[in-house]
Computed example of a mutant assay.
Amino acid sequence: MKTLRLLLGDVVLLVARLALGAVLILRGWSRLMAEGGMGAQVQYLTDRQVPAPEIMAWGATIFELGGGAFLVFGLLTPLIGAVLAVEQILVIVWTNWFNGLQGGPSGPGFETNLAQASMGLAFLAFGGGRAALDNLFKRPKDDVGEQQVMNDELADEPGQDGQESLLPIS
C-alpha cells in the first residue's frame, strides 16, 4: 500500500509540475508578446504604485519563462516553488488585494494567485517527485542507511491480517 501511495504522489507531483510550468511559460510569453509589450506591463505596475515597476515586470516575466521551464523538467523544484510563492503573494498585495478574492469591475481577483502560491509551497515542501531531474543531482545513500530505510518501509507495511507489525524486520 505504501508503494502505491508513493507512486500516486509521484504522478500527482509530475502532473502538477507540468501543468503549472506550462501556465507560467504561457503567462510569461503572453506578457512579452502582448500589445504594448513589456511597456504595457511596466505601466500597469506603475499605475498600482509597485516599487521599481520595470525591474518587477522584467523579473516576473523572466522568472515565469525560466521557472516554468525548470518546473516542467523538475529542476530546482523546491527553490522555484519558494520563489513562486513569494512572487504570487507580492502580486496579491501590490495589485489584486483590493479587488477581493474573485475580483469585480475594478479588476481581477487574487484567487488564481492564491492557488499558485499554494502550489509553490507544496513544491517547496515535497519537491518534484521521483520523475524530476532534481533527483539526478542527489548524493547516493550509503548501503547501511539505504538498508535501514528499506527495513523501516517494510515495517510500515501491514501484515497479512491487515495489522501493522510492531516488530522490526531484520
Rank of each mutant, 00 (worst) to 15 (best):
A132S: 08
F73E: 03
L101I: 05
E146R: 08
Q160M: 15
P51D: 06
T77G: 00
L114R: 02
L6F: 08
T3W: 10
R139F: 05
A19F: 06
M38Y: 09
G145C: 03
Q41M: 11
V12M: 12
N99M: 14
E87L: 04
D143Q: 10
F137D: 04
G159L: 15
P140Q: 07
G103Q: 11
Q163G: 10
L136R: 14
Q102Y: 15
L65R: 15
D156I: 13
A16S: 10
A122S: 13
L71M: 09
Q43R: 09
L8A: 07
V149D: 05
N113S: 09
G37S: 03
G28W: 02
A40W: 00
G104R: 04
R5C: 01
L26C: 02
G109T: 09
V15A: 02
G68S: 02
L121F: 13
G39T: 04
Q163A: 10
F126G: 07
K138D: 06
L133I: 11
N99I: 12
K138I: 09
A82C: 10
Q88T: 01
W58Y: 11
W94Y: 10
L26R: 01
L133K: 15
N99Y: 12
L79A: 05
G127H: 00
V23L: 14
R31K: 15
N151E: 11
R139M: 07
S170Y: 15
G128Q: 00
A57P: 05
V15I: 05
P51R: 12
T46C: 08
A125E: 02
A52I: 14
L76Y: 06
D143C: 04
T112V: 08
A131D: 00
F126P: 05
Q41D: 13
A19K: 01
S106T: 14
G128V: 04
G129P: 04
A57V: 09
V91A: 08
V91I: 04
A40H: 01
Q102H: 13
L166W: 14
D156Y: 12
D156F: 10
I55M: 15
G66N: 04
M56A: 15
G145I: 05
W97Y: 06
M150N: 13
G37K: 06
Q41N: 07
W58S: 10
A40L: 01
G59A: 11
T3E: 11
R130V: 08
E87H: 05
E64Y: 02
W29G: 03
F63D: 07
L65T: 11
E164G: 09
A117K: 03
V83N: 01
A60D: 08
G127I: 00
F126C: 11
G128E: 02
R27T: 13
T112G: 06
K2M: 07
G37D: 07
